[in-house]
Design a protein around this nucleic acid. Structure first.
Length: 558
RNA sequence: UGGGGCGUAGCCAAGUGGUAAGGCAGCGGAUUUUGAUUCCGCCAUACGGAGGUUCGAAUCCUCCCGCCCCAGCCA
């Protein structure tokens, strides 16, 4: 992507392999593919794989295909196909005309299955799933050959064709590769190539009632498409011998190679489709796009820029060691991108009234406020100031602890872009809580500086009572309370009950013009974006990520 | 106990026989009308451990330890 960090593209063992393949002439043009199964939404772990595959294709002037691995109609849905395409595009990648489905190749795969049968390298097995499991052996004991293993080519062909014709019920028979039932690699113990599944397929409808297994579909699809480097995660490592066996024994048009890298893990969240699906189905979150979810849909709604995700993927790199990345690294990438682009606005999350007694009651004046100190081109805006304002509750302390620089009785601070004010009195409600601050201001400090040059330790954000809008503010915290959710045995017990905090704050009027998804920085608070739940009379903002708070640690708070 | 992998700082991660990149986090300091940003500095005599080869080893050899994956007609 243009504009990506100037740092050199990450080096990794995959790029080293490609360099060598290019140098030796084994590869002319690099072709990769991202092969999701449409049985759930994409998450940031997939983003790593997407960035790797599409990124490599871009760097080497090759191409990357989007291919749906739709070989199991029992689990796959059109909704997921649509969502995946939307998310990959949003991430910033384009597969051009190269949109494929494993189901596009069903006829060819079927023919190759017969080819294997004719070559005496595949057979129809009548064993039940339970029998097959019992005869497969264990991790330490070899399996035993199926009694159907030596059927004739003619009988296998006949049976396989009748499987296709729908003559048998689900589970009655399968087609198996004849490899080595005693192999130490369980994937080579006569793996299933085809199973009977009387289920309609999202794309092929009722045309098929037998479907190829992942192993039989994946490598052959790669070969059909001319994929040169088939990148997948570590758990498929044991499948590589099978991948190669099939390629070696079939008249495929090209010779793809599989390489495995470690999947992404991030602490305080979960990156497994199964668990994410459970969170959605169990209503632990509002949906796949709940901003607390690590899904691309959730991150988008939360306000994370796609470029930040790409950058994060690049920083994390691709290697073969299992790892658990600190979510702080992700947040850093998000802040880095938003800092440069987000307009600054003032918003008070937990309002505390502040009245300036020596400011002419009813008077309103306009002050200049820069939109983004990081980007002069972003210009400035006018904000209204009056005698009645709101500041942040946490910006006042009646009995300030050491190192607390903000407002306190008798203390003077600056109101950003406005004036220096001094707290003269504190008003409390019946419960003894501070409900209002009585202050005076220095008329000579307009803009925020006193003519005599005196300094203040703090600058507070604020909003004018009469010129601000109420808004719902949603603060998101980690979805889980422990860095490794589920490691204690119960994944749901680790859910963070405070992962969502909803507040009603007040924001400056300029925010009414925001569009859904627009990123803004609420000064001194963090980056926020307008949520789709917003209505003209009820703005709703999501906190994408907070600003760094170095002083919070000093006082032992979070 | 079978097969396949992986161990470099708190977290990622380069390194491929010549004397440990970079990022995140952290810690100092400068600047600052966001306790933000930015900037400067610090942060592995050490590469899971023990032997060995070599003038020289994170890199080669041997043994040991630890962790991950595999027994779906899921992907």
């Amino acid at each position: 992507m243009a504009g990506e960090t100037a740092t050199a593209a990450g080096r990794d063992f995959i790029r080293d392999i490609i360099d060598a393949d290019l140098a030796s002439g084994r590869t002319r043009q690099v072709v990769t593919r991202f092969p999701p199964e449409p049985n759930g939404y994409l998450h940031i772990g997939h983003a790593k794989a997407i960035a790797l595959n599409f990124g490599i294709a871009q760097e080497y002037g090759g191409r990357c295909h989007l291919r749906f691995d739709d070989t199991n109609p029992a689990k796959e849905e059109q909704e997921y196909i649509d969502a995946i395409k939307r998310d990959v595009r949003w991430l910033g990648y384009d597969w051009g005309p190269h949109l494929y489905h494993a189901s596009d190749y069903f006829e060819q795969l079927y023919e190759w299955a017969e080819h294997l049968i004719r070559a005496g390298k595949a057979y129809v097995d009548d064993l039940s799933p339970a029998e097959m499991r019992a005869m497969r052996g264990t991790l330490t004991e070899p399996g035993r050959n199926s009694p159907y293993r030596e059927r004739s080519v003619e009988e296998n062909l006949d049976l396989f064709r009748r499987m296709r014709a729908g003559e048998f019920p689900n589970g009655a028979r399968v087609l198996r590769a004849k490899i080595d039932i005693a192999s130490g690699n369980l994937n080579l113990r006569d793996p299933v190539l085809y199973r009977i599944l009387h289920t309609a397929h999202p794309r092929t409808g009722d045309k098929w009632c037998i479907y190829p297994s992942y192993d039989f579909a994946h490598g052959q699809s790669d070969a059909i498409e001319g994929v040169t480097h088939s990148l997948c995660t570590l758990e498929f490592e044991d499948h590589r011998p099978l991948y190669d066996w099939l390629i070696d024994n079939l008249p495929v048009p090209s010779r793809p190679r599989q390489y495995e890298f470690a999947r992404l893990n991030i602490n305080y969240t979960v990156l497994s489709k199964r668990f994410l699906t459970e969170l959605v189905r169990g209503n632990h979150v509002s949906g796949w796009d709940d901003p607390r979810m690590p899904t691309l849909a959730g991150l988008r709604r939360r306000g994370v820029p796609p470029a930040a995700i790409r950058d994060f993927a690049r920083r994390v790199g691709a290697a073969r060691a299992n790892s658990l990345v600190d979510v702080a690294m992700f947040e850093h990438a998000v802040r880095e991108h938003l800092n440069k682009s987000a307009m600054r606005r003032m918003a008070v999350l937990r309002p505390l009234k502040l009245t300036i007694t020596n400011y002419p009651s009813g008077q309103i004046e306009e002050l200049d406020a820069v939109n983004n100190p990081e980007d002069p081109a972003a210009g400035a805006r006018r904000i209204k100031f009056g005698s009645e304002l709101y500041i942040e509750q946490e910006d006042f302390s009646e009995d300030p602890p050491p190192k607390f620089f903000r407002l306190a009785p008798g203390r003077e601070v600056r109101l950003r872009f406005a004036y220096l004010v001094t707290c003269r009195d504190v008003v409390k409600n019946g419960a003894g809580e501070v409900s209002e601050l009585i202050c005076t201001y220095d008329p000579a400090s307009r803009g925020g500086n006193a003519p005599d040059g005196r300094k203040v330790r703090a600058t507070l954000h604020w909003v004018a009572a009469a010129d601000s809008l109420p808004a719902e503010i949603r603060l998101y915290n980690p979805l889980f309370t422990r860095p490794d959710p589920g490691a204690g045995g119960d994944f749901f017990a680790d859910l963070n009950p405070h992962s969502l905090e909803t507040l009603t704050g007040r924001v400056e009027p300029a925010l009414a013009m925001a569009a859904i998804g627009d990123a803004v920085q609420f000064e001194r608070q963090g980056y926020f974006c307008l949520d789709p739940d917003s209505r003209p009379d009820r703005l709703v903002f999501n906190r994408t990520v907070g600003l760094r708070v170095s002083w919070a640690k000093a006082r032992g708070a979070g």
